[in-house]
Structure formats: structure tokens, C-alpha cells
């Protein structure tokens, strides 16, 4: 097996605010291999989007990457000059965002915006780039792309705009595509179409995809591997089938029980996770999840658990690492 395409090692990103330092990403490590689809799940504010923005080096102020490495094809992105990083963005790693209504520039034609990565990275003449962009618009399912390419974003529906965003990401057929909550802002029926589109892109262009979502259903349908994040750390990671069948972290376990499942063996009541998401300025000592954890032991509030092998996957939990099974009380 060849080395990973993208490797994140001990990434730490923090925001300095008047209230204190927010540790949005606190020591995240993972690998992404060519052509695979990796899901990152977690609640709002768990650091999944900041992880993605850190890879792109697009963390907004007052955020800052304070430690760790992001290796793309062996090169540390954190050490590149701005000019070198600009060559990576859009060319090697493309990113699409949550809200298609606001992610397109209202004053430029859609076709031009979609073809701009070609203009930037392939030094193509404008006309040729536009042609490439138009073709890509057609491939993401925009009807009569030649006409629609001349439209402005406000002529497009939300679903169409997200298609255009995906086309924009794919024009350069980058090895890595990061999709940050690509379906959250869309109607349910459109969501499925967009996910299909991402799946096809992954198959057709061999684009490795990082799919960031809070929706476990989306991960189940899309991703080979999944990482679960909580309070800026990865708490569980493994093959999607393993993690979903036998969660080894109480947070994953609780998450899975908080959503309705079609394959439930019996009629289980939904159980929301008790308590509040953690304060990232002053996180709880030990395991950040322990105040909400139904399985917590004395050690959980004292020491931070590392991400270690538990069964078929990795989990950061003192309870499961000591061999205890997660079961209803």
C-alpha cells in the first residue's frame, strides 16, 4: 500500500479571543489515501470545519495553526510560502462549502467562477477555461450548461448552486476534495442528488474526498472510513461499518442512539445526549466528554485518554480501552 496522500499529524488550531484561547482543534492526526472517502462527524463546534480550513490554511482571524503538520504528498503545507500554498489550493486540494447561497460571488457569471481554477492553475486562455468550466457544469448535472454558464448566481436555485460549487472544485480534477457540510443548507430531496454527485466524482475522477458532516446517515451512505470528533479531538476512528456496528466511544455510542435508524432490531426510543457541548476555552479536565458520559469512571475526569486500538477501530476512552463493552444500563 502506497503512503497516504494527505497526512495530518498532531494538528492544533487555536483562536485568541478576548474571553480566552479557544482550542478549536487540539491534536488531530489522521491519514487520507488516494481515492478514498473519509467522513468527519461531530456536533457544531467540535472542530471539524476548522480542521478542514487548517488543511487549506484558510483559518479565519483570530484563528491560528499553532502546531502539527499537514503533509500532502510528503510536503508539509504548514511550511509552504503563501505563493506555494496558492498552487495547492484549488489545484491539489479543492474545498466546497456549506452554504451555496452565499458561497458564490454575486457579481460574476457562474461559468466564469466555475472555470476560474483553470484560469488560475492551468494558465489557459479565458475562452478555453470557460469551455472547460461549461463542460464540468454539464457533468454535475446542470441542464443546458452553455446557457446557464452565462447566468449569475442569483438565477440558480440552492441545489444548482451547490452543483456549480462542486463543478468549481472538480474542474482541475484535484486529488483531494474537502466537502464541508455540502448538503446541510439544502432540501432533503436535493441532498441525495448532491451526495450522488460527490460519490460519482469520487468514482469517476478518483478524487479522495473528506466529507464533513454532523449527519451520521450521510456518513453511513458515503464514507469508507469515519472519524468522530469531540471538543477539538478525534475520539473514535475506523471503518464506517465497524464504528457504526460497534461504537467504542461513549460519544459515538450516544450519537448513534440519538438518531432514528431504519435497521433497528426493535423499537428503541431515541435518546438525546444529556448536557451541553463543552466550553472550548476551559474544557473539562481529563476526557472532555466525561461530564456527559454515562459510563465515566474516576480516571476519566483526571487523565486525557489517547486514541488507541479498541477492537477493530481506534477510540480515545479509558472505559472501552479497559475492555468494558458499551451497553444500555
Amino acid at each position: 500500500m502506497p503512503g497516504p496522500l494527505l497526512e495530518v499529524r498532531d494538528l492544533k488550531t487555536q483562536f485568541s479571543t478576548p474571553e480566552g484561547v479557544v482550542k478549536a482543534v487540539d491534536g488531530v492526526s489522521f491519514e487520507l489515501h488516494a481515492g478514498e472517502t473519509l467522513g468527519i462527524v461531530g456536533e457544531s463546534g467540535c472542530g471539524k470545519s476548522v480542521t478542514a480550513l487548517s488543511i487549506m490554511r484558510l483559518v479565519p482571524r483570530p484563528g491560528r495553526i499553532v502546531g502539527g503538520q499537514v503533509l500532502f504528498e510528503g510536503r508539509d503545507l504548514a511550511k509552504l510560502s503563501n505563493a506555494q500554498m496558492q498552487e495547492i489550493r484549488g489545484e491539489s486540494i479543492a474545498m466546497i462549502f456549506q452554504d451555496p447561497m452565499t458561497s458564490l460571488n454575486p457579481v460574476f457569471r457562474v461559468g466564469w467562477q466555475v472555470s476560474e481554477p483553470l484560469l488560475l492553475h492551468r494558465s489557459m486562455p479565458q475562452a478555453k477555461a470557460l469551455q472547460g468550466g461549461t463542460i464540468m457544469l454539464g457533468r454535475v448535472g446542470i441542464p443546458s450548461p452553455e446557457t446557464r454558464a452565462r447566468d449569475f448566481p442569483h438565477h440558480f436555485s440552492g441545489g444548482m448552486r451547490q452543483r456549480a460549487m462542486i463543478a468549481m472544485g472538480l474542474t482541475t480534477t484535484p486529488p483531494v476534495l474537502i466537502a464541508d457540510e455540502p448538503t446541510t443548507a439544502l432540501d432533503v430531496t436535493i441532498q441525495a442528488q448532491i451526495l450522488d454527485l460527490l460519490r460519482n466524482a469520487n468514482r469517476e475522477f478518483g478524487t479522495a474526498t473528506i466529507l464533513i458532516t454532523h449527519n451520521l446517515g450521510v456518513v453511513a451512505g458515503m464514507c469508507e472510513r469515519v472519524m468522530v470528533m469531540y471538543a477539538g479531538r478525534i475520539v473514535e476512528s475506523g471503518l464506517t461499518t465497524d464504528v457504526f456496528a460497534h461504537p467504542k466511544h461513549p460519544y459515538t455510542w450516544s450519537l448513534l442512539r440519538s438518531i432514528p435508524r431504519l435497521d433497528a432490531e426493535r423499537h428503541e426510543p431515541l435518546k438525546p445526549i444529556e448536557g451541553m457541548p463543552p466550553d472550548l476555552i476551559a474544557p473539562p479536565p481529563g476526557c472532555a466528554f466525561h461530564p456527559r458520559c454515562p459510563f465515566k469512571v474516576e480516571r476519566c475526569s483526571r487523565d486525557v485518554p489517547a486514541l488507541n486500538r479498541v477492537g477493530d477501530q481506534l477510540a480515545a476512552c479509558w472505559v472501552t480501552q479497559s475492555g468494558v463493552e458499551l451497553k444500555d444500563a
Binding site: 484549488g90 479543492a94 462549502f97 452554504d99 452565499t102 460571488n105 476560474e116 481554477p117 468549481m168
Partner: peptide
């Protein structure tokens, strides 16, 4: 958001 999109294009 569209400025972030532009930055992400490189």
C-alpha cells in the same frame, strides 16, 4: 463566504 471560496481556489 464567497471570498473564502475565492481563497480556496488558490
Amino acid at each position: 463566504d464567497y471570498v473564502r471560496t475565492a481563497r480556496a481556489k488558490g
